[in-house]
Simulated scan of single mutants.
Amino acid sequence: MSTAPTLRTPMDAKRLRTILGEFATGVTVVTYRDTDGSPRGATMNSFTSVSMDPPLILVSVARRARACAGLEDNAFTVNILAANQLDLALHFAGRPADAPVPWHEPIDGPPRLIGTTAWLQCRPWRTYDGGDHVLVLGEVECHDTRLLEPLVFHRGEFRRPGLKLLQIPRTVAFDGRPTCEWVDRVHTLHALADAGIDNPPLDI
């Protein structure tokens, strides 16, 4: 018994990009040494952890990007940008800044950026076909972090994190029980403040 072939609707690339943009990510600059030894970098938000044993991370690099060839069998560092490093994100995304790049060049290994919230130095592990991108896996050899706010990318815009979820007033506990009466009063105060009322009534 034969069945009719399934008709596939043509993919709307713009719509797909918009939908994928609903997933908020951090922002990284992947740095490496060019063939002449010069430090290079590229802004990427397609970055994820892969394995803890061995310690592997992955970045997705556009095939047409200069970094695609630069990362081939080459050590690299993933620099996770801090919220105050928007200028670096734009610089390595093709909008060069006038200020000098804060490079740190260790005696051994690829260059990295100063002032980031974290960095991971990697040796090349594997590369895989990813369509119009190449999936580059690196084995983490050393790393470090600082307690800084990270830069965030969401809906095509750079942002910074807001309040921790547990700092936001709520009227129902996680187990479904009502919380204390004062929480409702905090909600009312927040609503009045958002409305621009400087002197709320005292009987709330």
Rank of each mutant, 00 (worst) to 15 (best):
V152N: 03
S2N: 10
T35N: 10
F92L: 09
I80M: 06
D203S: 14
Y32F: 15
G196Q: 10
M44T: 09
V61I: 15
Q85P: 04
Q167E: 15
T188V: 12
R185K: 13
F174L: 15
L202I: 13
I168C: 14
M52R: 07
V27K: 07
P161H: 05
W103Y: 06
L20P: 00
F23C: 07
R95K: 15
E181Q: 13
A89L: 06
K164E: 12
V136D: 00
Y32E: 02
L137S: 09
C142M: 00
L7D: 06
T116E: 08
F158D: 04
W125A: 10
E139A: 08
V61Y: 01
A93M: 08
T28H: 01
L163K: 09
F76D: 04
I197W: 05
D175L: 05
N74D: 03
L192E: 12
L7S: 08
R8Q: 08
T145E: 04
W103Q: 05
F174C: 04
T6Y: 02
N79V: 00
T3A: 11
E22S: 11
D129A: 10
V59T: 09
A97E: 14
E141P: 00
V183P: 00
R159E: 02
Y32T: 15
P106R: 03
A83N: 06
P150C: 03
L20D: 00
L20C: 10
R159C: 07
N79Y: 02
H143Y: 08
D34H: 14
E181R: 13
E149Y: 01
W119H: 06
M52Q: 06
C180K: 13
R63C: 10
A62G: 11
